[in-house]
């Protein structure tokens, strides 16, 4: 099955980004595909490579980049939400790209399920 994921909350502040990541990992481990994760609202902060969490903490941004590299997951950041919050191409972590909201609707149509992680 193909699971698309929508992340609406920033990393660290809210558990949504962690839950979304663990859901994606579990789905892939069970043989499903995660074609795209779409980052909207404060979720766009998941793409900011300038984040430096403490050494003993998980690195949420790097974790997404690794997931994209290992499993060909398309990490898409909403352009309108990103500009509003200062997230631009020059600070994107590897594997992320900025595009329009159409990419969210499109993956909703294409995937078997769309799972929202938010408040």
């Amino acid at each position: 099955m193909q699971f698309a994921i929508l992340v609406n909350e920033s990393p660290y502040q809210h558990q949504a980004a962690d839950s979304a990541y663990h859901f994606a990992k579990a789905a892939i481990a069970m043989g499903h595909r995660v074609p795209r994760v779409f980052f909207y609202m404060d979720g766009v902060h998941n793409a900011n490579r300038l984040q430096e969490p403490q050494q003993d903490d998980r690195n949420i941004v790097q974790r997404w980049s690794q997931l994209a590299a290992d499993h060909d997951v398309d990490l898409v950041v909403c352009v309108a939400a990103a500009l509003r919050r200062g997230v631009k191409d020059e600070i994107l972590a590897p594997g992320f790209r900025i595009s329009g909201l159409g990419q969210l609707v499109e993956i909703g149509i294409e995937a078997d399920r769309l799972v929202t992680f938010g408040d």
Binding site: A80, G100, L101, G102, L104, V105
Partner: peptide, 9 residues
């Protein structure tokens, strides 16, 4: 904003 975009699909 998502609702308005969805109308195009």
């Amino acid at each position: 904003e998502v609702v308005l975009i969805s109308a195009a699909f």
